[in-house]
Amino acid sequence: MARFSALTGRTAALAAVLALLSAPVLAGAPKPEIPRGKGDQCVEPTEVMRRHHMNFILHQRDETMHRGIRTKKHSLAECINCHVPKAEDPARQVHADSPKHFCSSCHTYTAVTIDCFGCHSDVPQETGVAKEDLVVPVHGSAPALDLEQEAARMVQAGGKAE
């Protein structure tokens, strides 16, 4: 019984958050114009990326930094390579301090400050990695995420933080 109510509570919280994420609660604030990336499909389904890109990047960060794992799929450099167009004229290059920058477009809208670009390059650059490594396996080896479970986990984590 107790278990049942806990579950209902969780589902309700989840529903609330999902509603928050999808409904235009910030009516009035102009929706961000999100620049299109290269190709047809991101490395994970769009809904997964919207909610979990930070987890992928955080995981990859530690793997690369400490264990030297340099797969391309969840690498920040490759996010930038696909999502930030390179300007012919460097003076017209869009940087992270502009709301036209892919990352900043959403982060400005949601008022979530990121400090990635205090150190990392915010524009595409050659990584010097062999070309064949750059072929990104779409929906490749990573275990499929249970979206609902993941969302519930994040709701709980968010609840604790507040």
């Binding site: 030297g68 205090g118 990392h120 390059s121 650059q125 990584t127 990695v129 062999a130």
Partner: peptide
């Protein structure tokens, strides 16, 4: 500003020779 993609570096942190770890790994 204008950091290299293979050598992220920024204010408030310490840095030193990395043996060009991004090259060594490749």
């Amino acid at each position: 500003h204008g950091q290299k993609v293979n050598a992220p570096r920024g204010k408030g942190t310490v840095e030193s020779c990395t043996f060009c770890v991004h090259r060594v790994d490749n």
